[in-house]
Amino acid sequence: MTPPARTQAAIELLDRIVAAAAEGGAAADTLIGRYFADRRYAGSKDRRAVRELVYRAVRRCGERPAGGRAAMLAVAGEDVGLAATFDGSAHGPEPIGADESAAEVGLAPVWLTELLRASGIDEGELPALVDRAPLDLRVNRLRAEPAEIATRLEGAEAVAGLPDALRLPAGTDVAALSGLVEVQDAGSQAVTLATLACPGERVVDLCAGGGGKTLALAAMMAGEGTVLACDTDRGRLQRLPPRAERAGVTIVETRLLNPNREMEMLPEWRGAADVVLVDAPCSGTGTWRRNPEARWRLTPERLERLVALQAHLLEVAAELVRPGGALVHVVCSLLDGEGRGQVATFLAAHPGWTAERPSVGFGRAHGLGLRLTPAHDGTDGFFVARLKRPC
């Protein structure tokens, strides 16, 4: 592909990504994969170059742009070489018109930026929210040792404070290590430590999804005890058993729950769990480094629904915790309404419950919990709080 053809391909992909963001369609990575599956002629260098252009444009446009061309023009306005590819050649984009408008450059939609500032994210930390993220791994100690895995991966570095974590350059291929490692952000690994899960305990991962934190819990427990992995999404939950088998994990049980009727499937777990982890569905404002188009998907209405869902899940979790046990609330969000505010609301409604600020080697005190940010911790953004039920 010529440079103009690469630019045109990026514009076409951006058109699809913008439309999907507006309509709740597939993620950018999925759309890029589909695009090139239909274009086998594009070599690996072409695919890489187009992908870089796409994400460069997504990161530069805070508000959802009108379309792919407007998004790419925002980048071209800062890059003379890229602007030159708008040459009207056979497979390239049409020349830039004298009065043609580019998408607005920015961090995020204005309403979201204001919420971040109101939640205590200062100006100096904002740009890091959309930087490119490294590739972090969690070494599965049930099957391997970090030092051994590090010798097999060029550029692998230990992550201070996380003995099972390795950091690699973005794009490193780790498929050959399936079962020995899990791709998991260092921040995600750190907040899981807030559970203090121990061998022999009964632990519930209430929003397990595909099971990243479930498998980390099983490793923390050295394969002894029980981890009940729950979710209301059958497709996501079905991905967990094969991952557990590859990882040599035998203490995980899965259970599909009905939304808003979760306790119907959990009667024997009422008041029986040593720890309940609520890795709640959230805005994902802490994960923009990996999913920058998520800024275009969130609306005030969707955020309001997510906050209500989180509050509901905390109520469900509270019923499962045994006297003296713990509830750990985690969101990959930097918004106080989903983190600090949720915890304050929960404690006000549950006399006797107390907050026990976690110590995970990352983050800063925020409200009654900890907050991790890309700028301060070099991880995705998270809020985590550990809540104790009275004996």
Rank of each mutant, 00 (worst) to 15 (best):
residue 196 L to T: 12
residue 105 V to R: 13
residue 354 T to F: 02
residue 218 A to E: 11
residue 380 D to V: 03
residue 83 A to P: 00
residue 213 K to C: 14
residue 25 G to V: 10
residue 300 P to N: 10
residue 147 A to G: 14
residue 243 R to F: 13
residue 208 A to D: 06
residue 253 E to K: 15
residue 370 L to E: 09
residue 129 L to W: 03
residue 368 L to G: 15
residue 334 L to E: 07
residue 319 E to W: 10
residue 290 R to D: 12
residue 55 Y to F: 15
residue 112 L to W: 11
residue 19 A to Q: 14
residue 5 A to N: 05
residue 293 E to S: 07
residue 202 R to L: 14
residue 212 G to F: 12
residue 183 V to Q: 05
residue 234 R to M: 01
residue 289 R to D: 00
residue 145 E to N: 11
residue 324 G to N: 14
residue 40 R to E: 14
residue 327 L to E: 01
residue 291 N to T: 07
residue 21 A to H: 05
residue 185 D to M: 00
residue 95 P to D: 03
residue 20 A to I: 04
residue 4 P to R: 08
residue 1 M to T: 15
residue 213 K to T: 12
residue 231 D to G: 06
residue 198 C to E: 14
residue 56 R to V: 01
residue 55 Y to G: 02
residue 336 D to E: 08
residue 216 A to P: 05
residue 201 E to N: 02
residue 379 T to W: 02
residue 117 R to P: 04
residue 220 M to S: 07
residue 346 F to R: 08
residue 170 A to S: 15
residue 277 L to Q: 07
residue 350 H to V: 00
residue 365 A to M: 09
residue 374 P to Y: 08
residue 197 A to S: 11
residue 242 P to E: 09
residue 224 E to T: 13
residue 193 L to D: 00
residue 98 A to I: 15
residue 250 T to Y: 02
residue 199 P to Q: 00
residue 263 M to S: 14
residue 303 L to H: 13
